[in-house]
């Protein structure tokens, strides 16, 4: 499942992070990498960007970028 398809309040485990190399590295460096658990806190009022909790802090990403990330074990 794509991260961008997850709903508010769902958790999941990151499976793969894709995307262009510079961004991809930054996202990984921020802790969004294979095996990390993430929680979708909310979507912004205009449905973009989204806010997620990873490694205990809040991070916001655009839906476009979240669509490059696949997650598993979504609950």
């Amino acid at each position: 499942m794509l991260l961008s398809e997850m709903k508010e309040g769902q958790t999941g485990i990151i499976n793969r992070v894709g995307g262009k190399s510079a961004l991809r590295r930054r996202v990984l460096e921020m802790g969004v990498l294979k095996g990390s658990e993430i929680y979708i806190e909310k979507y912004a009022p205009l449905k973009d960007p989204l806010e997620l909790i990873v490694k205990g802090y809040h991070l916001s990403l655009r839906v476009e970028e979240a669509a490059q990330i696949t997650v598993e074990d979504v609950k």
Binding site: L23, E51, L59, E65
Partner: peptide, 10 residues
């Protein structure tokens, strides 16, 4: 524009 990756502090 560059991708939007931003930390939201408490």
């Amino acid at each position: 524009d560059a991708p939007f990756v931003m930390e939201l502090p408490p």
